[in-house]
Design a protein around this nucleic acid. Structure first.
Lengths: 224, 224
DNA sequence: TGCACTGAGTGCAACGGTGCACTGGGTGCA
DNA sequence: TGCACCCAGTGCACCGTTGCACTCAGTGCA
């Protein structure tokens, strides 16, 4: 994911490269160890920086985790905003069910399987430190806010409350789906496992849709 | 080529890595541009460092060139010293013709073709700045001294004058061979080009040998 | 229960890299 | 022949990283 602002010199590039390396290494170690079963030293070695540098970039391990989870959210927001905009002004107004369709498409399109394993596992882990739960919930909230903002920009005619409810429901639903997927596949990364993921996502979205009948076309609800 | 002394911390490793990148980039640019047809900025970009950093490591472009050529010499010395030592004390003494054989084997074994193109071209180029000739000749002399020292260590019984003459003759001979090779193949890097190189090296070494008859076996001189 | 150890987090100074403005020599052109 | 430009090389200040010693909380064990 490119930096929010263009890197204008080598110093800034180096800084950003190291920050990204730390976040990426944390994601890998979460995956490999099944949680927070590594040290700051492990993280530094994997990121190819010094231990001090980790703390130059992040105030704490919690901040590193927040950045990891933030990337997951950013991925989803990117997939959502990457869709072609509605074709005319009339379509941009109202129609929360079409907003639902777009969000659903983004969830389907985003490769959430590898990066969300530890997120789900972290939330579901009874032995997890409470502070990690705090980090995760904050990241979900921040990500949800960004997703809602993107949706409001895209469909300004839709009620803000409807958008917030939609986003909140889908994000937490995706976590539930992911936990089921994880238990069914043991986080395998192969075609069969991805098929299970698609099936579960479709079931979840179909289930949600039945409460979101189309306002313009009450007949013929389609389930993929 | 590993550092002479082990790198003990990340700072030293970073410094050495950047120094090596600069030298490697210079070698590539010499090859690509056929000489000194690039700027310090080009070199810095290719080495992925800043222009200032080049001068942090080297006093001048001449010093960079010296380091590039020094790598070529080091390659040859490494091939020479990598050979198994003579099996007994008697063999370690005298026998300059066997010293010749060992040096010849090193010349054959060293992949000199890619890295010496610009060295030869530089020495043969009339338009070249005189200061480059100075750099090259100094590097040849330094490399020759190291090679001679390695030879004296390996065969302490051989006269020092004989060793110095041998090393000097072979090094300058290799440059002549390389110029002929370069003119015959336009520095192509393929099997046919390497076959030409091997043939020329063999001719040069066979020619030298006829002036170095074996002391222990006066009959049956072999030419490969 | 006291002690030793581990590891997160911190302060500080040094190192290596970098940005930038500058000088001066060399070159080409009107 | 003067001027403009290019580029090697330089000084200086700043940035980011790093090494290292430290504190403190948590943990395990005799």
């Amino acid at each position: 994911m490119p930096a929010i602002h263009p890197i204008t010199d080598r110093r800034a590039a180096l800084k950003e490269r190291h920050r990204r390396a730390i976040v990426a290494a944390a994601a890998v170690l979460l995956e490999e160890t099944g949680g927070l079963n590594f040290t700051i030293e492990d993280l530094a070695v994997r990121a190819d920086v010094s231990r001090r540098t980790v703390f130059n970039h992040f105030a704490s391990l919690g901040d590193v985790l927040a950045a990891v989870f933030d990337d997951v959210m950013a991925e989803l927001v990117d997939c959502y905003t990457a869709q072609p905009p509605p074709e005319d002004a009339a379509q941009r107004s109202a129609s929360v069910d079409e907003a639902f369709d777009e969000l659903a498409a983004a969830v389907r399109a985003t490769d959430l399987v590898p990066s969300m394993s530890y997120l789900t596992r972290s939330l579901g882990d009874k032995d997890q430190s409470p502070w990690v739960d705090g980090v995760l919930l904050r990241v979900l909230e921040d990500g949800g806010l960004r997703l809602a903002a993107a949706m409001r920009e895209r469909r300004p005619g839709v009620d803000a409350l409807e958008i917030d409810l939609l986003v909140n429901t889908v994000l937490h639903g995706v976590l539930v789906v992911h936990r089921h997927w994880y238990e069914a596949t043991a986080a395998a990364d192969d075609d069969a496992s991805r098929a299970v993921w698609s099936s579960l996502v479709d079931r979840f979205l179909a289930r949600l849709r039945s409460g979101y009948a189309r306002e313009h076309d009450p007949g013929d609800p389609t389930s993929a």
